[in-house]
Design a protein around this nucleic acid. Structure first.
Lengths: 216, 216
DNA sequence: GACAAAACTCAACACCGATGAGTTAGTCTG
DNA sequence: CAGACTAACTCATCGGTGTTGAGTTTTGTC
């Protein structure tokens, strides 16, 4: 009774929010299963949609990743930390805020997805690159008015990237189990050094014992 | 004439070195195209072999990666650097030797392959993990007789991993174009700090200006 | 109400990793 | 030296993947 023998196909009646549903399903899948592990068919199934629709909306798997993870990037506000307190504590503020983003269930999974995809997806790779340069770290390094801001940004970003990979992706102990405050205490001096300290040791091979003062 | 109408199949006559050829083709493909980008079919084609033979030899794509990259790991001798000179220069020695391995055409491509595969292949992930812990960094951190060698190992490994990713994988400027000596000069103090310096700043939020002395 | 555009499905393509059966050549045992 | 065993090797095939193009239905606009 009241059966629909008509084969599917064609636009659905009523208001449409499938696009947002696809993006949410994609976000979850990328976070849980990584880039290679998520399939367009799986995302489509989770969103109750034909796989071809996903491709029509976003062009490619990489386009889907880009659309799902680019919106509202969690790390955006990190760049504003420079002007918010003592310069001598910028390292601690940045380290703490960064780790908090990783541990927040709203933002952490998305950052995990980006890092896990960084070697397989051009979009993810571009996101990490932009984090280490113009989007986050470079503004921060410029705000500190030290020499070679580009190099400082790259080194600081590389450090934070490496620590996050070890702690949240590879889960290397004891780093993975360290509570946030202890982790901040370990990261802060290094971040501070990269941003405000003497960047290159005076001679390559004979490093004096006190190169790491971070007095500006 | 002298045609061979006989269909192929079966062992080839003469001495066999196809296994080594497969491994070499795999090594090159993993280095050039990454883990996802290399296909068993492509490796088999490069080695002049049927794809099924690759799997019979190595069980799976991950098994192929493991066999191709595990043999003679380039980073092995890094662990012996601790006892070879002044402790105060260990950071510089480690940084230099590490970067040299990356720039050596015999070892660099293999390390690149491992890092590029780190998020897609369990074997590669295990290799990076073992680099940060028992294989390389932990022996090094133990040789320095400071407190918390496991945490020092993890942080030092994470730093070196992050820098290599930024410099050799993402090619972030100006870090990527820095000559080796300048890079050593930038990395050495941080490595030294992680191995021999005061690991955690005294208070989480108020970091004194001279926490980064690396006097033992 | 005609009509273009957007939303949506279906069927197909080429490729992927993996499996199992079958064929040939080297090697070991008597 | 013959037979048995094993290692090397190919073939056909399976289910799954990203991607494409054509076709269908609804929405929004003049």
């Amino acid at each position: 009774m009241t059966e629909q023998p008509k084969r599917a196909g064609g636009r659905r009646p009523g208001a449409t929010r499938t696009r947002a549903e696809i993006l949410q399903a994609a976000q979850e899948s990328f976070a849980e299963s990584g880039y290679t592990g998520t399939t367009i068919r799986g995302v489509a199934r989770a969103a109750g949609v034909d796989p071809a629709l996903v491709l029509q909306f976003f062009g490619s798997k990489d386009g889907l990743f880009d659309a799902a993870l680019r919106a509202d990037p969690p790390v955006g506000d990190l760049a504003e930390l420079a002007g918010q307190g003592e310069l001598s504590e910028l390292g601690a503020r940045l380290a703490r805020r960064y780790l908090e983003l990783w541990e927040d269930p709203r933002t952490g999974p998305r950052m995990l997805a980006v890092i896990r995809a960084a070697t397989a997806s051009p979009s993810a790779s571009a996101m990490v690159t932009s984090f280490m340069t113009d989007a986050v770290m470079l503004p921060l390094a410029r705000a500190v008015q030290a020499d070679e801001p580009e190099l400082r940004a790259a080194l600081t970003g590389a450090y934070l990237f490496g620590v996050a990979t070890a702690r949240y992706v590879l889960r290397i102990e004891p780093l993975a189990s360290l509570d946030t405050e202890s982790a901040v205490a370990s990261l802060a001096p290094v971040v501070q050094h990269h941003l405000t300290g003497q960047l290159r040791s005076t001679t390559g091979s004979s490093v004096g014992p006190s190169v790491m003062n971070d007095e500006v």
